[in-house]
Simulated scan of single mutants.
Amino acid sequence: MRKPIIAGNWKMHMTMDTGRAFVREVAAGLGDTEVEVVLCVPFTLIQPLKAAAEGTPIKIAAQNMHFEDSGAYTGEISAEMLKEAGAAYVVIGHSERRQYFNETDETVNLKLKKAHEAGLIPIVCCGETLEEREAGNTEAVVRRQVIAAFEGVSPEQTVTTVIAYEPVWAIGTGRTATAAQAQEVIGYIRGLIETMYGDVISEEVRIQYGGSVKPDNIEEIMNEVDIDGALVGGASLKPDSFLSLVNF
């Protein structure tokens, strides 16, 4: 049985004070949750929020990383640094990284492998633009991204990787894929993993949906057979909203 995972992606939001207050309020409202709760926070918040979340079910994630261990890469951060700061997860290949910061299928693959080397759990993203969907290319785009991401990744590493399907046209737009649309693509992704690694691995890999997830659509999304959680943007910035998602 795959454990549901709800991850809040704060993007470039929150300070230490607001972040700590958020963690306290969410931790108080979780109870005995059976959901894996992850907060993907700015680099400066990883260490303080790891400390604030001590003794709670909340795990901390980074939003990006470099694929080299060290070097002359001004402004970058390595997997080892993230691990040392207290991150348990790292988001890789988010569409905003692809769109604004020249992330490619190749760098996603390098980062995925480096994250595993460092003992981080990658949340690797894939998804099509509106133009690609309207042209009927959703499966082709997702197939290319998934196959490239997992090139040279072992079955043991794959089974602990979280995949996030995030249609670019649904991120921050208020436009959400229907539960059926999300299930269709996520089912396709699970089929790709089965082709690459076999049915045992594909049945264990957790696949999230991301794209304008809100308290009023989370239950419908989570009722789909292949959807194991959500990668949430705006709705993860307020404790009550995020708790509604976790306690779906």
Rank of each mutant, 00 (worst) to 15 (best):
M1R: 04
I6H: 01
N9S: 13
K11Y: 09
M12K: 11
T15D: 06
D17M: 12
G19I: 15
R20C: 15
R24I: 12
G29W: 08
T33K: 07
T33N: 07
E34Q: 13
E36T: 15
L39Y: 04
C40D: 07
T44R: 07
T44P: 00
L49F: 01
T56M: 11
I58D: 03
A62R: 02
Q63V: 13
M65D: 07
H66T: 15
E68Y: 08
S70N: 08
S70I: 15
G71F: 03
A72L: 13
A79M: 11
G86Q: 07
Y89A: 10
V91M: 14
I92M: 10
S95M: 14
R97D: 06
F101S: 03
E106D: 09
K114T: 12
A115S: 12
A118V: 12
L120F: 10
I123P: 02
C125G: 11
G127C: 14
E128H: 00
T129H: 06
T129Y: 03
R133C: 08
E134I: 15
G136W: 05
T138V: 15
R143Y: 04
R144L: 04
F150M: 15
F150Q: 09
V153L: 11
V153H: 00
P155E: 12
Q157F: 10
T158S: 06
T158L: 02
T160H: 05
T160A: 07
T161G: 11
E166H: 02
A170V: 14
A170D: 06
T178Q: 08
A179G: 10
V185W: 07
I186R: 05
R190I: 08
E194N: 04
D199Q: 11
S202I: 08
E204H: 09
V205L: 02
V213Q: 02
P215Q: 09
D216K: 06
E220D: 07
M222T: 03
V225G: 00
L231A: 09
L231N: 03
G234Q: 03
S236P: 01
K238A: 11
L243Y: 01
V246K: 00
F248Q: 03
